[in-house]
Amino acid sequence: MLKRALAIISLLIIGYWLAQGLAGVPFGQDRMLVGQYYLDHVKEQTGAVNAVTAVVVNYRGFDTLGEVTVLFIASTGVGALLWRKKRERTAKTEGSIVLTTGTRLLAPFIMLFGAYIFIHGHLTPGGGFPGGATIATAFLLLYMAFTVYEIPHKAFEKVEGAVGMSYVLVGLIGLAIGGYFLFDWIWQTWGWGHNNIGRLFSGGFIPVIYTVIGIKVGTELSGIVDNMLKEEVRE
């Protein structure tokens, strides 16, 4: 009781302190310094209509590379923590026939929608991470509905590594023919897609990067799900 009261009081104090700090920031006013630059120049500098993905992939590509690395480390960490010689799915109850049939029908559509999200990252909200998470959801659904389902590990791990490398490779090509790491060479150097801003074939290397990220995130989260759903088999 005393512990809980102390926790509540300290949380209230911290909350009041943070609110005091934020009270000086007016809401709804134009306080953009760098943001205005992004909004003004995003179209001719990156070709993307979605300013968020342009910032995330183009202007601050290092952040995204770091996030992909974090996800990769999380996936590897889960794999390392749960590593056993012999692990199998020990699920016993098959999903009901409604669930299995529904999964059979829905999983391809969910994957299709995930691919739609990451391919259209420069046009619509979303991008690689939501798209990849959606694809992983389809695999999670398959895992939940079928007791025997298992992702093809060899292919998944290879694809994961290959797309991770190709992200760095795209950045290195920018370094080679442009100027710096993660330089948008498709847009800036080649000038490819300049006349169709707002269509699918525009946005420089944002669709390329996001396809890569989407596949990577999808395979990684599926791998984490796979690792966590398996149990050690006693001989």
Partner: peptide, 20 residues
């Protein structure tokens, strides 16, 4: 359409899990 297809399936799974 997506909601029409998924909502009954999820309700079915929930009910069944509740019964089990």
């Amino acid at each position: 359409l997506f909601l029409l297809l998924t909502n009954p399936v999820s309700a079915h799974a929930l009910i069944r899990a509740a019964y089990k």
